[in-house]
């Protein structure tokens, strides 16, 4: 990655590199509540998220490209989420799955729930729903792949 943040790659190389990256998304599952059930369902044979190139079970955050925060993030959990996020190598992406992690959801006036994980992490894709169906997560993954395909690694890494 020494040069990637300084040199804009030629278009064909960029296309190929991004095409390869978008179909190899090692996904860290940060399942926190009932949304995690739907996230698990999307990884089971019926919806089979692996056909999109998502590899759902990395051995550690250090191997992961995407983090899916699924469920209610309480204030006490936030330091752990940030810690895991910071262990992931660049380029990394975050999906906020479900109303609770998007905005607090039904717990918007709770004393203990964070009002949206995007206060703490740079979220790339928001998946709405309470909980969202597995198809919604598949759609979110496709949105993320679109984003990765049209992304410039120079811009991403030089920030």
């Amino acid at each position: 990655m020494a040069l990637l943040d300084q040199v804009e790659l030629p278009k064909p190389v960029r296309f190929t590199l991004n095409w390869g990256r978008k179909y190899s998304l090692w996904t860290l599952q940060f399942g926190l509540a009932c949304c995690a059930i739907e996230m698990a369902a999307s990884m089971m044979p019926r919806h089979d998220i692996m056909r999109f190139g998502v590899i759902p079970f990395p051995a550690s955050p250090r191997q992961a490209d995407v983090m899916i925060v699924a469920g209610t993030c309480v204030d006490k959990m936030i330091p752990s989420i940030i810690r895991v996020w910071e262990q992931m190598p660049e380029p990394k992406y975050a999906i906020s799955f479900g109303s609770c992690s998007n905005s607090g959801g039904p717990y918007w006036d709770s004393y203990s729930v964070a009002k949206g994980i995007d206060q703490y992490l740079p979220i790339d894709v928001y998946v709405p729903g309470c909980p969202p169906r597995p198809e919604a997560l598949l759609d979110g993954i496709m949105k993320l792949q679109e984003k990765i395909q049209h992304e410039s690694l120079k811009e991403r890494l030089s920030v």
Binding site: D75, D109, Y111, S112
Partner: peptide, 21 residues
């Protein structure tokens, strides 16, 4: 026991202010 260490106030008291409200 359950709440975060930096939590302030006693949230189940009825005069406790919920900021989002």
């Amino acid at each position: 026991l359950l709440l975060a260490d930096w939590q302030e106030g006693f949230p189940m008291r009825k005069d406790e202010v919920l900021r989002p409200r």
